[in-house]
């Protein structure tokens, strides 16, 4: 039973990180019908940006204020990268065939990844310990303060995003643009602005995810974007790509799933089982768990 609760805690932690990153994929796909392959590299970049901000601007301080500032600055910097990505890699190809955009996305991903390598080097870097190492042992199950923070902050951010999308005017504009861009324009919605906003939100959430990866796993590498990006992307597909609550659900489920596989079978099998899960879900529900259930009547 201990293993169960221990893996439950671990799974929820990893799952929240997947969910944060998955939101970036799903929101961009929702509006542009484009898989933002560069998102993973952006997430990796955010961890390295965090490293540098910690070492330089913050003078290696890990006071609460400094940590909050690091999160805010990294989110802002990554959002800027996201805006540039959209502006130069995707926007010029908006009317081009789908494949061109995919190639551009892969190209942007490689550029970003190699950029990280050039700036921060090819070797693994160790991310600073910004959160005090506090652990609780609850009947044999060890939970860290960091895990609690990751889970709480993720839930908070996702709740805020959900509220924003469902309850605000701008959120409605995002949903409308995802359904029918021309119709959205006819409502007076500036779809280009909506797309920029999508990249800002997706990239900042991804940045928080990248910082969590650094804090939780400690070792960060320039190519880690592929691995976490792939998992988050699978999470988005499991939840139903384009669907925001779906990405949250898919992330948490995938986190729990990999944690239980690691706990009960072996972590070396996690990849294989993850793909098996993906295939099974796609067979049973090709549109993912929460993918479009209502077809538009023509």
């Amino acid at each position: 039973m201990d293993t169960f609760f221990q893996q439950l805690a671990n799974g929820l932690t990893i799952g929240s990180i997947y969910a944060l990153v998955a939101l970036g994929y799903t929101m961009v796909y929702g509006v542009l019908k484009l898989i933002n392959f560069a998102h993973g590299a952006l997430v990796a970049a955010s961890a390295f940006i965090g490293l540098t901000i910690y070492a330089t601007i913050m003078g290696e301080s890990s006071s609460l204020l400094a940590v909050i500032a690091i999160f805010a600055l990294v989110a802002a910097a990554t959002a800027c990268l996201g805006i540039l990505l959209e502006r130069f890699a995707y926007r010029p190809l908006r009317q081009a065939p789908r494949l061109s955009a995919v190639v551009s996305a892969l190209g942007a991903s490689l550029i970003l990844q190699n950029g990280i390598m050039l700036v921060w080097g090819p070797q693994m870097r160790i991310f600073p310990q910004l959160v005090p190492q506090v652990y609780w042992n609850i009947g044999g199950v060890v939970i860290s303060l960091l895990q609690v923070i990751i889970l709480l902050l993720s839930v908070l951010l996702m709740a805020a995003l959900y509220f924003f999308i469902e309850k605000t005017r701008m959120g409605a504009a995002i949903r409308a643009s995802a359904i029918d861009q021309d119709a959205a324009r006819l409502m007076g919605i500036n779809v280009n602005r909506v797309i920029t906003l999508i990249f800002v939100i997706g990239s900042s959430l991804g940045a928080i995810g990248g910082l969590f990866i650094g804090l939780y796993y400690r070792g960060i590498t320039f190519e880690m974007g592929w691995q976490y990006g792939l998992y988050a992307f699978i999470a988005a597909i499991i939840g139903g790509i384009g669907n925001i609550p779906g990405a949250m659900l898919g992330g948490l489920l995938l986190g729990l799933f990999t944690a239980f596989i690691s706990g009960y079978i072996s972590s070396t099998w996690a990849d294989a089982f993850t793909f098996l899960l993906l295939i099974l879900i796609l067979i049973v529900r090709p549109t993912g768990l929460l993918g479009e259930r209502v077809a538009q009547k023509v």
């Binding site: 409308a176 359904i179 119709a183 006819l186 538009q296 009547k297």
Partner: peptide, 13 residues
Amino acid sequence: SHSPEGRRVFGIL
């Protein structure tokens, strides 16, 4: 204001 051909309502809203 333009009510387009084919209605183009936002179906999942």
